[in-house]
Design a protein around this nucleic acid. Sequence first.
DNA 1: TCGGCCATGTAAAGTGTTACATGATTTC
DNA 2: GAAATCATGTAACACTTTACATGGCCGA
Lengths: 180, 180
Amino acid sequence: MPKKRTLPYVLLGLINDKEQLSGYQMVQEFKHEISDFWTASHSQIYPELQRMVDDDWIQIVTPASQPEANRNQTYYALTEAGHTVLLDWLREPLTAKDSDLFPLKLFFIKTKDSELLRPLLTQQLAISQDRVVYLKGRKTTVFQTPSDIDSHYGHYLTLSRGIERETNYVLWLQKLLEAL
Amino acid sequence: MPKKRTLPYVLLGLINDKEQLSGYQMVQEFKHEISDFWTASHSQIYPELQRMVDDDWIQIVTPASQPEANRNQTYYALTEAGHTVLLDWLREPLTAKDSDLFPLKLFFIKTKDSELLRPLLTQQLAISQDRVVYLKGRKTTVFQTPSDIDSHYGHYLTLSRGIERETNYVLWLQKLLEAL
DNA sequence: TCGGCCATGTAAAGTGTTACATGATTTC
DNA sequence: GAAATCATGTAACACTTTACATGGCCGA
């Protein structure tokens, strides 16, 4: 589903991870690593990169360190401003409405001792815990008798699975936070 | 190939579940039960309903059985054609590309002995199993040394969590299929 | 009777996908 | 040297959200 501009931040995160990156390489990243959390086609990425250059979030660089680099590819690196924008975005608290940003932001955290990690996990934990409570409430109100289950079996399954999934999520987050 | 519309099928499924339903009631459903799998605002739903009436998938009905029904609401029921369209959609096999349709389709299956249930679960199981294999492959290729984990900790976490989540999914599906 | 919610409808703008296009490089 | 792939770019279209708009009903 369409959300508020997320693509530029994803691109910032990708470039930040590799120091410099070409548009084509970003397309490949979307095909492999990122595809779980976000999708973008090359027809989105290339214009977006141009806009980001215009906004001075990134700049075109010639990769001196790698003579292997394909000359046909245009490489980009973060500007000072780009670093700031990325950090601000990562620091922005998660809300229940767009908690699907969690795996995305988590993906961009490089080290275990990043000061961004704990707040992110804590925020998602709160959201997931609320969700478990909400789903359990729905289950008890919607399915009060066995016949309610029999006549809406698929609904019952999706709700039950949702509770199970979200509960596992909570447990995983708690375990991670303890280990920090 | 233009992206396939899903909204009309969701509406068909909702109406089918309740025999007859008003646009407003559908909006409410989207706010509560469906929100996990699909979202739609009223500005999408109302025009879509009109299109579906034009296509003769649904028809406007006056709910005789419920005098309680609000006179301001327009109620819809499935036509013969609508039933067929819904069934055809539910029977359409899941693909890895749009496996997010699984919870949605499952939601619309009413009874445990529906002949649609087993194929649906089987298809999703195959997709999830493939996914586990793929994710595990990524993990071993991307993270070969402990230092790979340390320098891309967030990536490592999302990948690990993805494997865990999908594995749980597989187990749930297998348990369900056995119990059938 | 007035402010608020109900119930529906429409318009505009943002976001994303598919299709179309092109030069450059690799491969057979 | 023809075919396939690389790498980028643009155009058209599909989908969704936000905002705008309206008449009816209901409680204070």
